[in-house]
Simulated assay, not measured.
Amino acid sequence: MSGPAGGPTVLVINANAGVVQARQLVRALAQQCRLSLVEQTKLITAASELARNTLIYGGGGTMTAALVEERGRRGVRLVFADQGPGIPDVELALTDGWTSGSGMGLGLSGSRRLVDDFVLDTAPGQGTTVAITKWAR
């Protein structure tokens, strides 16, 4: 389930089936990276939430997934990107317990807590990109 020569895989998320595919791909990469079961679950949960956000709030987009190695560490990096309306109030969107809809209620803050690296890039009218990484312990 990885791209050419183990490179990144890009998945289109434009329906619920894309969210399911994203979870399956992330599970496979997490196992390949030898993340513990707990770490796999955290990454899959965060990916599921972010994929759903990409679909619901971003109107669809992509997830780029790859195994990465940096400073002797192995991990899984996921980048969710959409061309939606963007997030007008990032601080509010990253507040624990805040939700703008009917998702799992984890929101961005919950996803951020479940991973090791979390980078959010958004602006009103410019879409949203969220990059997350989970490192093997």
Score class of each variant (00 low, 15 high):
residue 14 N to T: 15
residue 14 N to F: 14
residue 14 N to L: 13
residue 15 A to V: 08
residue 15 A to Y: 06
residue 17 A to L: 12
residue 18 G to R: 06
residue 18 G to A: 13
residue 18 G to F: 11
residue 19 V to L: 10
residue 19 V to P: 02
residue 19 V to K: 01
residue 19 V to H: 02
residue 20 V to I: 12
residue 21 Q to V: 05
residue 22 A to L: 08
residue 22 A to H: 03
residue 23 R to F: 00
residue 24 Q to C: 02
residue 24 Q to L: 04
residue 25 L to C: 10
residue 25 L to V: 12
residue 26 V to W: 06
residue 27 R to Q: 10
residue 29 L to G: 00
residue 29 L to N: 01
residue 30 A to H: 04
residue 30 A to R: 06
residue 30 A to W: 08
residue 31 Q to D: 05
residue 31 Q to T: 11
residue 31 Q to K: 12
residue 31 Q to N: 06
residue 31 Q to I: 11
residue 32 Q to C: 02
residue 32 Q to M: 09
residue 33 C to D: 06
residue 33 C to V: 14
residue 34 R to I: 12
residue 34 R to D: 10
residue 34 R to Y: 11
residue 34 R to W: 12
residue 35 L to Q: 06
residue 36 S to P: 01
residue 36 S to C: 05
residue 36 S to I: 07
residue 38 V to K: 01
residue 38 V to S: 04
residue 39 E to F: 09
residue 39 E to R: 13
residue 39 E to P: 02
residue 40 Q to T: 07
residue 40 Q to S: 02
residue 40 Q to A: 01
residue 40 Q to H: 08
residue 40 Q to C: 09
residue 41 T to S: 07
residue 41 T to M: 04
residue 42 K to T: 06
residue 42 K to S: 03
residue 42 K to F: 15
residue 42 K to A: 14
residue 43 L to F: 10
residue 43 L to H: 07
residue 44 I to P: 00
residue 44 I to Q: 03
residue 45 T to V: 11
residue 45 T to D: 02
residue 45 T to M: 04
residue 45 T to P: 00
residue 46 A to F: 09
residue 46 A to E: 04
residue 46 A to D: 10
residue 46 A to S: 11
residue 46 A to I: 02
residue 47 A to Q: 07
residue 47 A to V: 11
residue 48 S to N: 13
residue 48 S to M: 08
residue 49 E to M: 08
residue 49 E to Q: 09
residue 49 E to C: 07
residue 49 E to A: 03
residue 50 L to P: 01
residue 51 A to Y: 09
residue 52 R to A: 12
residue 53 N to G: 05
residue 53 N to D: 06
residue 54 T to Q: 02
residue 54 T to L: 00
residue 55 L to F: 14
residue 56 I to D: 04
residue 56 I to N: 04
residue 56 I to K: 09
residue 57 Y to T: 00
residue 57 Y to D: 01
residue 57 Y to V: 03
residue 58 G to M: 08
residue 58 G to E: 03
residue 58 G to V: 05
residue 58 G to R: 00
residue 59 G to A: 09
residue 60 G to K: 14
residue 62 T to G: 15
residue 62 T to M: 15
residue 62 T to R: 15
residue 62 T to E: 15
residue 63 M to A: 13
residue 63 M to N: 04
residue 63 M to D: 05
residue 64 T to L: 12
residue 64 T to I: 07
residue 64 T to C: 14
residue 65 A to D: 06
residue 65 A to R: 04
residue 66 A to Y: 03
residue 66 A to E: 10
residue 67 L to I: 15
residue 68 V to M: 09
residue 68 V to W: 12
residue 69 E to W: 09
residue 69 E to R: 12
residue 70 E to T: 14
residue 70 E to W: 14
residue 71 R to L: 15
residue 72 G to P: 08
residue 72 G to A: 02
residue 73 R to K: 14
residue 73 R to I: 14
residue 74 R to G: 13
residue 74 R to C: 15
residue 74 R to Q: 15
residue 75 G to T: 08
residue 76 V to F: 14
residue 76 V to A: 13
residue 77 R to A: 08
residue 78 L to M: 02
residue 78 L to K: 05
residue 78 L to D: 04
residue 78 L to V: 13
residue 78 L to N: 04
residue 80 F to S: 03
residue 80 F to T: 03
residue 81 A to F: 14
residue 82 D to R: 07
residue 82 D to F: 09
residue 83 Q to L: 11
residue 83 Q to Y: 05
residue 84 G to S: 12
residue 85 P to C: 01
residue 85 P to R: 02
residue 85 P to E: 05
residue 86 G to I: 13
residue 86 G to W: 13
residue 86 G to P: 09
residue 87 I to A: 02
residue 87 I to Q: 00
residue 87 I to L: 06
residue 87 I to W: 07
residue 88 P to G: 05
